[in-house]
Simulated assay, not measured.
Amino acid sequence: MQQVEEQQNIKIKEAARILGKSEQFIRIGLQRNIFPFGYAVKMSSVWTYHISPKKLNDYVGGGKQTK
């Protein structure tokens, strides 16, 4: 089994910071399948989120560095 060294998931807070949007904006966009960089899954009454670092990076412009 190959080890993955990169970060597997970006937190909502970090994605919001990178995109300059609110955390709620990111959550709702993922829940409605608007964004191409992650998924939202409702488990009972709780939502869980996955944001792909690679897909988020591609979405914001590839190799663009963010502070």
Rank of each mutant, 00 (worst) to 15 (best):
V46F: 07
A15L: 05
A16Q: 05
I26L: 07
Q8I: 11
E6V: 05
I28G: 00
I51W: 09
F25L: 05
K13N: 10
P36S: 05
Q3K: 14
K21P: 03
Q3H: 08
M1P: 04
K13P: 02
V4I: 15
R32I: 02
V46D: 10
N9D: 15
G20A: 12
Q2R: 14
P36W: 09
I18G: 02
K13I: 10
P36D: 03
K54N: 02
I12A: 01
V60D: 06
V4T: 12
G38K: 03
E14S: 11
F37Q: 01
R27A: 02
S22T: 15
S52A: 12
E23I: 01
L56E: 12
K54I: 04
Q24G: 00
K54Q: 08
H50I: 08
L30C: 03
V60P: 06
S22L: 08
L19I: 08
I12R: 02
R17D: 13
Q2W: 10
K11Y: 10
E23K: 09
Q31N: 06
I26E: 04
N57L: 11
N33M: 03
Q7V: 15
I34F: 13
E23H: 03
I34D: 14
A40H: 00
A40M: 01
G20K: 12
F37Y: 15
Y49P: 03
W47I: 06
K11R: 15
W47P: 04
F25I: 02
Q3D: 05
K54P: 02
N33S: 13
I51K: 04
Q31M: 11
Y59C: 00
I26N: 00
E5Q: 15
E5P: 01
F37M: 03
K54V: 05
G29N: 09
Y59I: 00
N57G: 15
I28N: 04
V41G: 02
Y39I: 05
N33K: 14
L30G: 03
R27G: 00
I28R: 14
R17Y: 09
Q3N: 09
